[in-house]
């Protein structure tokens, strides 16, 4: 039972390797052997969209048609890829003259896209297809005692609101709860981290990320989990800038939700990319040990 082809996107191969390192084994554990798309290209993210509209449709059209050739729907863990592909898909299947032109150009290079592909985010598949019951069955090691702020960011829940609420989504919270951890009430869960702006405009980036981290600290979270490589990156690298600018000492671990899933499933800790964290995880491990002890 596997109707998905894995589209990693550029981040999962570089700064978000631990996303791939955790999402693939977790899905395997759940019976999904995810095969990576052959010779996939970048989705263009927010950059190409700011430069050339036709180009975005064309490069995403290439990805969609590669999936169609493989006869599989796309599983895209990165928020920017997910959105770009979904947006291009709705454009290319819209029946407009502009869409017809791009489709014709794709045909010229031997790629046909009939519009049969769906683009999904892993979280959507975990919640709606696999289901929390099956996930609970797989849990070997409950993450008891761990308080988690689930951060969704923007582009998975907006503007395509397919599987959760655009303002106050809850799917990741339910998932984290199924692992035995405790999701905290996190009002900032869909507030923007600044995306590609954050690192380039430090003043904007440090403030936006400070709001996100401060709220998590206030709610007693031990860790923030996210589903977007850029959110994770910003939340990590901004902490030193926040410390300087706002005179605070914050060491908030930022992890992919899939890393916590792998941990709860009893997969080897060393294989889930925890060593890639830029923030020390010591306090979190200690909390987990204690949490487990309290449970017994």
């Amino acid at each position: 039972m596997n109707n998905y082809i894995y589209y990693p996107g550029c981040s999962a191969k570089t700064n978000a390797k631990h996303y791939e390192e955790s999402i693939l084994p977790v899905f395997k554990e759940l019976g999904f052997d995810l095969e990576e798309m052959e010779d996939w290209n970048c989705c263009g993210a927010t950059a190409t969209m700011s430069v050339d509209e036709k180009k975005v449709a064309a490069i995403n059209g290439r990805i969609l048609s590669l999936a169609e050739t493989a006869k599989k729907d796309i599983l895209a863990p990165c928020a920017a890829c997910y959105l770009s592909l979904k947006k291009a898909n709705s454009f290319l299947t819209g029946g407009t003259d502009q869409a017809a032109e791009i489709l014709a150009r794709l045909k010229d290079i031997g790629l046909e896209y009939k519009g049969t592909i769906e683009v999904k985010h892993p979280l959507e598949v975990l919640i709606n297809e696999i289901g929390l019951e099956k996930i609970k069955e797989k849990v070997q090691r409950k993450l008891s005692g761990l308080k988690v702020a689930c951060y969704y960011g923007c582009q998975v829940v907006r503007p395509f609101t397919n599987f959760d609420d655009p303002d106050y989504p809850e799917s990741m919270d339910k998932l984290i709860q199924a692992l035995g951890a405790e999701p905290v009430e996190y009002a900032a869960k869909t507030r923007c981290c600044g995306g590609a702006l954050a690192a380039n405009l430090e003043e904007v980036g440090s403030k936006l990320n400070y709001i996100l981290i401060k709220e998590a600290v206030k709610k007693g979270a031990d860790v923030i989990t996210t589903l977007c490589p850029l959110c994770l990156f910003n939340l990590e690298i901004m902490q030193s800038k926040i410390a300087k600018k706002y005179q605070v000492n914050i060491k908030m671990p930022i992890l992919f939700f899939s890393q916590l899933m792998g941990l709860a499933f009893g997969l080897p800790k060393e294989d889930l990319g925890f060593s890639r964290s830029l923030i020390p995880l010591k306090a979190m491990w200690k909390k987990l040990e204690n949490g487990g002890a309290n449970e017994q």
Binding site: T46, M49, G153, C154, Q155, R158, P159, T161, P166, D167, T190, C192, G194, G195, A196, L197, A198, L201, V204
Partner: peptide
């Protein structure tokens, strides 16, 4: 300065 969060849009 638009970070494409789509908040306004939805």
């Amino acid at each position: 300065l638009c970070s494409s969060c789509y908040n306004c849009q939805v």
